[in-house]
Design a protein around this nucleic acid. Sequence first.
DNA 1: TGCGCCGCATGAACCGATTCATCATATGGA
DNA 2: TCCATATGATGAATCGGTTCATGCGGCGCA
Lengths: 334, 334
Amino acid sequence: MAQTRLSDVARLAGVSTGSVSNFLNRPDRVNAETARRVSGAIERLGYVPNTTARQLRRGQSEAIGFVITDISNPFFTTLATGAAQAAREAGYALLLATSADDESGQSQYLDVFENRNLDGVLVTPARTTPNLDKLRANGTKVVLVDRESDDYCSVSVDDVAGGLAATKHLIDVGKRRLMFVGGERRIQQMRDRVSGSRAAVLAAGGDVTLVEEHRETLSIDVGREIGAEILALPPARRPDGVVAANDLVALGMMQVLSGALSIPDDIAIVGYDDIDFAAASLIPLTTVRQPTRELGYRGARMLIAELTETGEHEHSHVVFQPELVVRASTSRSA
Amino acid sequence: MAQTRLSDVARLAGVSTGSVSNFLNRPDRVNAETARRVSGAIERLGYVPNTTARQLRRGQSEAIGFVITDISNPFFTTLATGAAQAAREAGYALLLATSADDESGQSQYLDVFENRNLDGVLVTPARTTPNLDKLRANGTKVVLVDRESDDYCSVSVDDVAGGLAATKHLIDVGKRRLMFVGGERRIQQMRDRVSGSRAAVLAAGGDVTLVEEHRETLSIDVGREIGAEILALPPARRPDGVVAANDLVALGMMQVLSGALSIPDDIAIVGYDDIDFAAASLIPLTTVRQPTRELGYRGARMLIAELTETGEHEHSHVVFQPELVVRASTSRSA
DNA sequence: TGCGCCGCATGAACCGATTCATCATATGGA
DNA sequence: TCCATATGATGAATCGGTTCATGCGGCGCA
């Protein structure tokens, strides 16, 4: 209960508080003998510095925040794991907020962050870009994850390439009536994936068609719904290949479709993200793998770098390349 | 950049800092006119209180921590969601730490928490109980989640009942050669689930057998391994019913087994937790549902209650009852 | 011997909000 | 009219580190 204070350490060691503080923060600035005494006193008292006081004086918290858009999607938790690791390595704390079940969503959580005075936040922009500028005006650094922007540092994945690879693969295995299931068109990633998909169709020539279906959220349940809708179509109008914009939808669709149709013969499915459950499905899911963990890791490192750099800041952008992982949901031989 | 301080507000409103502080924290103590002026000044300046300074003075951080044992298991993220909600409702921040990929594991993260001076932590004790006592001696409150203990408040689920229900169900659908796949025996939950399982076998009489398999971790990959081992057995020695101690293992096993055997005819599988993917599997998984979100929610509320209560503290314990959810992995009719 | 410099310790001021003893003013009752 | 009481404002002290201007002793060099 009774916190031992830095001044207690100073008294026991017979030095000033300044020296103790220096020992803690710039050990090179204290004499070896002094260091020995201070270190002994700290040991003896079991002293732990009070982070709050340090933060107050330093004007920074050594903590960064991350808003998880959808905690039920392993993609985001993997992102968080990567970010957490980077934070830990740099001695930062990672404060996670979840906007999972909430109507007003993200911007509310950014508010939470606002008066927790974090040094910076990692943001995965959802449907609309929340008022990041306001945060930044308040002195909080911002790095975008899984999204590019000229105004902020960002780490992202080439979604055009991902959409293209997924679609081209379906065409290569002989599918002609394709369907793209995406999220809200306002989200940049979705637009990119769609445009990659279209590019692949265009390149294939005239006999390949592509229909697009867009939903607000991309969950397992939504996948089930869309699967049911496909089954309700007359067979001739059913797609024979589907590109889903995330694995959850793909798995939901597959569950419903596998009851009535043969996968991949009647209908082949490609997901996106390569969450663990994609490989673990009874029919393993072909999917576009993103370097998810790395994405979170690099994002956090970038943020921390921005926090610690001294000179003028230049926004930097890292773009990873996705990788198509072929499994049984599109190919018998896989 | 230049933070507006409380004293700026006071100056603009023409009142003392004490009054501004009172307006913020005990509005009933300030005159209506004063309140109006202060509120106007806050508005005009866009003032946001500095949480760090408040924490320092108050001696508390209004933040609680939660160590996620395995972030790749949706069970734990759901727990976190519940806890996050409770924290949010009470105006607390939830600091998440992940011990996912780390050899030394949990205790290290509790250290991180130690000098972040949190008011309390929520702990899901893993294999060994980390040095919680030390934390507590430092003034940090502790509540155990998913585990009972006399020395701490706790929220848990009746694991004996869960193991029993799962096993009895297999027996009821006609299975006789049962297998229990659990985690480390040192973990209390595992012991409870096993003993529930044994009780069900005992109650069924002589012709039901139970073999036990224990692994350090319970992941999809481990499930695959065990599935392969089962397939390698001579048919007569294969179990015809499996109780898995979490859904991940169950899903992993099912993936391997469904290739060679008929589920549920040759072998029926029951999981544990009822994560979303259990219902979403191509063969939906029968499982023991835990009120996971509620568990996190109640745990956090309990912790916050302990933090805000004034009198003597009495440890309290909430024990939820699990619920068996029957699906196709054990029953054709389901 | 004297001067300048270096290394290191010192401790008061400070970060920004909260608290509380104190005081001013108003109200009511005798 | 006077005193007791209530209401509410005040501002200095405080929380626990960090910083920095200041000072001191020792060493090298001329």
